[in-house]
Write a protein that binds this DNA or RNA. Structure first.
Lengths: 184, 184
DNA sequence: ATCTTATTGTAGCGACTGCTACAAGGTGAA
DNA sequence: TTCACCTTGTAGCAGTCGCTACAATAAGAT
């Protein structure tokens, strides 16, 4: 006896649609596939969200929220001893296989933000801000400039991740060897 | 008397379509608007390129080529005196207003590469490779490790550009102050 | 019981998607 | 000329797009 009385609302629909978008992307996300993934009809999506633009905006906000809580839970107890270790840990986390669907989605969000699509920039901003918080709390204890260091590592991290997704992971790695992160 | 005998071919169509894509994006690029921008019909685009996938692939290759030659022409005579100056110059160039439409397109290419769309990764790879060459020839003369330094600067550059497009330009700037690029 | 309101299904609209069938013109070779 | 081939226009197909009109049901308030 599946889903007796769905009682659908924005809150129950968003996670299901987020899962679909995480797998199939934002660009090609149209109402009918989204509705099918959420167990409804396009008719009801419009009913609940008004129009597609608002739906996407809400969905991006929801995904940003999920990402934020996910980052907080990934925060362990042990502090890295150096900036290099800190960077390596965060980079390794971003490259985990479970993170890959999200990374693919992430670049779509960046592209949407660059093009000015509604909701994209706000979501990207929040996710970057949360990632900065994550990095700041993970900076080594005796770091002379934890705030600046976290921003530096974040910049380097994003560049490294981008080069990785376009097939230049080796280039990013070689670049790190020429940075001040090589001598720990 | 406009366009007497167009003699259309792949070579004459690609620059016109590239201009259209530079302005309106790759994601929403459909055959009929592309054809209109190129002064033809969708019918002829299919005739010349076979199908849309091949058209996009060829178009991305063409854009990558244009970008490469543009980089080569942007290469001046004077060498920067330090890595910091080198970085600042390349960053300033990437932020020129004329480069902005291309930057918007660039993130779409990255997103497409991340999703595995045909042609995207190849184009992104070539453009990154060309940018590396550009950076390598622009490294200061007495640099102890020009190859590694160029890769390092490229990684930092891409991260900086990305943070800028999602509204965190200040964060990237603050991060650079905490890097080894701050003391020139 | 009646009235109101919230939720949902069915059917469809007009616009757009990539692509194709068919025919017509243009050009050059024989 | 005749033939072949390259190029192009017209018309349209089946499918998808976001969205809506209309009606039916359900539930709660009075």
């Amino acid at each position: 006896m599946p889903d007796q009385k769905p009682k659908m609302s924005r809150e129950t629909l968003l996670p299901l649609m987020a899962a679909h978008v995480m797998e199939h992307g934002l660009g090609g996300a149209s109402l009918r596939p989204l509705a099918k993934a959420a167990g409804t009809s396009d008719r009801m999506l419009i009913y609940h969200f008004g129009n597609k633009e608002q739906l996407i905006t809400d969905l991006l906000g929801y995904i940003a929220g999920v990402y934020s809580t996910g980052l907080k839970m990934a925060l362990g107890d042990e502090r890295p001893a150096s900036r290099q270790q800190c960077f390596a840990r965060v980079l390794a986390q971003g490259r985990q296989p479970t993170m890959q669907p999200f990374m693919v989605l992430w670049w779509e969000i960046v592209a949407g933000a660059a093009r000015g699509l509604p909701g994209y920039k706000e979501a990207a901003e929040e996710m970057i801000a949360q990632q900065l918080v994550f990095l700041e709390t993970l900076m080594p204890e005796g770091d002379p400039d934890p705030a600046g260091g976290a921003r530096y590592l974040l910049t380097l991290l994003e560049g490294t991740l981008m080069l990785g997704t376009v097939g230049h992971a080796r280039m990013a790695r070689d670049g790190l060897l020429a940075s001040d992160l090589s001598d720990a």
